[in-house]
């Protein structure tokens, strides 16, 4: 996307997952990162984009940006907080 100036350290696609495995998969990947690293997660519109960013935030991580990919998916940029 043109408006994306965030450099992700790792990318993850969870468009093939359903709740709660969307969040579970995101969590498994983010736990492997170091503090301050950024994960870009591609997810479907609807339930995933409503819930996954919120759950990551509840876990203490920082949601940097949510981009609409205009194809029914979103990319969520999340910065890992804590170790």
């Amino acid at each position: 996307m043109a408006n994306n100036d965030i450099q992700a350290d790792e990318e993850l696609d969870i468009t093939d997952k359903v709740c709660p495995n969307t969040f579970v998969k995101a969590k498994v990947v983010i736990e492997e990162l170091d503090e301050g690293q950024i994960l870009a997660i591609r997810m479907n519109d609807g339930e995933p984009v409503q819930n996954v960013p919120r759950s990551l935030k509840d876990d203490g991580h920082k949601i940097l940006q949510i981009n609409d990919n205009q194809d029914g998916t979103y990319t969520v940029y999340v910065e890992k907080v804590g170790d």
């Binding site: 709660p20 495995n21 969040f23 579970v24 998969k25 969590k27 498994v28 736990e31 492997e32 759950s55 509840d58 876990d59 203490g60």
Partner: peptide, 17 residues
């Protein structure tokens, strides 16, 4: 394993660790 233990992994207090 991720699928089997997903309800643990979701928990902030447990997680993958």
């Amino acid at each position: 394993q991720i699928e089997r233990y997903s309800r643990h992994i979701i928990l902030k207090e447990i997680g993958v660790k």
